[in-house]
Design a protein around this nucleic acid. Structure first.
Lengths: 259, 259
DNA sequence: CGGCAAATTGACTCCACTCAAAGGAGGTGG
DNA sequence: CCACCTCCTTTGAGTGGAGTCAATTTGCCG
């Protein structure tokens, strides 16, 4: 199953996600993500109002940025399809991966307080986002209490996820938890929980988990020899979910809260 | 100071912060935290409305819990005075410190999504909190757009802070960043940025920074011999802010966003 | 088929952890 | 008021897990 991997043909070096937006044709109620995306839990009528502020981005290709560190903050974005990576470049020029984002997840929430984007978000494969003007979102939230609580909830969720990532865990625990969390997220989006493609490279995983690339490779090999998983390049198959869960230990139990 | 260890004298098993609350006498407009607490940026009239939903807790002593992992989520709490620690106990029984919280900061935001408290919050010294019913807070936010955006902003701020803690930094970097961040937070609350008391123990700092207690001790000694700080027990004096900043490197630059 | 980047594997190093023991500081009781 | 006890902190010695450096190997794509 190729799941979320889309074909990377077409013209590259696309414009930013904001430009040439199509307001029309956005129908959250028709979207198969409606259960896990922002409009989750909204009434039929509320969703209709919500649809009015959704600005569909053009197709984004691997390497296209949704926004960059330092950009002025005007919109948050919900992943419509594809996989995105958020990262920062620190003052030493080192990249630091903050997260991988699947369809239905909100991007740019950490920019609300500083009023400018503090991280970069880049497409890892072909996909698209729905842009939401933060101003409009705020206004609408005032009329739609459900939307407001949905937003609070989403941000709370991210706080919970970060609490977990920040934990002090071994390389094995981190990797196991990472695979299990990914599996769960794919499942909730209708893909196979047992076998999936890693869109991101080993070094991106390593960076996200605060490990060295070589360590990620070694840990995966270790899991394979123990019969926990099957790995072939990007394709991962979970063979022994039970044991993997044991390895992850407390590194995963909390991630379960954050789909 | 016994920090989180409950002294078994007195009527132990103290009442929760929620009980015997005094609704009266809460005047955010008179509070010296109004600049950095929840009502920051609200109009005079809005603050008055806000005051109606603030429930002042009785005085809390070192070891008293504000709420515990698993508690049903009904309120968030703003620190009024004192220093608090949030932590979780993982399935192996290990404590994991998530943060230290000074006056003006909001507690319990990570509970919104799961609808129950996912961490424990305990007083490190004598202090108090202002409890805010989340339901009332949501309702009020609908009428007070400024309050809503203040809440979004606060949560965003916490997300930014966590992004930093989650980073891959050396023991020296973490410790330096921790001291600088604390210094800044004290300063914005009207205390000295140059010399302050660590309310928390070495082991709590270590746990928070994902280091061993001995490492914290060694790093502090190292900083002292290099003339960066003066340390005597809990008292810390920052002698060479410049160099400390250099040591912290990129571990701190981001923390600056999160007062 | 050749060139290139990603991934794996191996050898070695080092930072931070663990184990262990020796100082302080503060509190308690005689 | 002092002695004692306990807990926190510091310091030392040794270990180990993950990082670094380096050499292949693998797969991709022109």
């Amino acid at each position: 199953m190729k799941n979320y991997r889309l074909f990377v043909a077409e013209s590259s070096a696309k414009p930013l996600s904001m430009r040439s937006q199509k307001k029309t044709g956005v129908a959250c109620s028709q979207c198969n993500l409606s259960e896990i995306c922002v409009p989750a839990g909204l009434s039929r009528d509320a969703i209709h109002q919500f649809e009015q502020i959704v600005h569909k981005s053009p197709t984004l290709h691997a390497g296209d940025h949704v926004f960059r560190q330092g950009d002025s903050f005007t919109t948050v974005a919900a992943v419509r399809s594809g996989c995105f990576k958020s990262y920062v470049i620190d003052e030493d020029g080192n990249e630091q991966v903050l997260g991988f984002h699947l369809p239905g997840e909100l991007l740019g929430l950490d920019a609300i307080y500083p009023k400018k984007h503090v991280c970069n978000v880049i497409a890892l494969d072909t996909g698209g986002v729905c842009n939401l003007s933060y101003e409009e979102l705020q206004e609408l939230s005032i009329n739609l209490p459900d939307l407001q609580s949905q937003l609070f909830s989403t941000m709370s969720q991210r706080i919970g996820e970060l609490n977990t990532i920040a934990g002090a865990y071994s390389a094995d625990q981190r990797m196991a938890a990472f695979l299990l969390a990914l599996s769960l997220r794919f499942e909730s989006r209708g893909y196979s929980a047992r076998s999936f493609n890693l869109v991101m490279s080993r070094s991106e995983i390593a960076n996200y988990l605060r490990l060295a690339t070589e360590t990620v490779s070694r840990v995966l090999t270790g899991f394979r020899t123990k019969g926990l998983i099957r790995v072939k390049r990007k394709l991962v198959e979970i063979l022994d979910h039970e044991s993997l869960h044991e390895v992850a230990g407390s590194a995963f139990c909390k991630l379960e809260n954050s789909i």
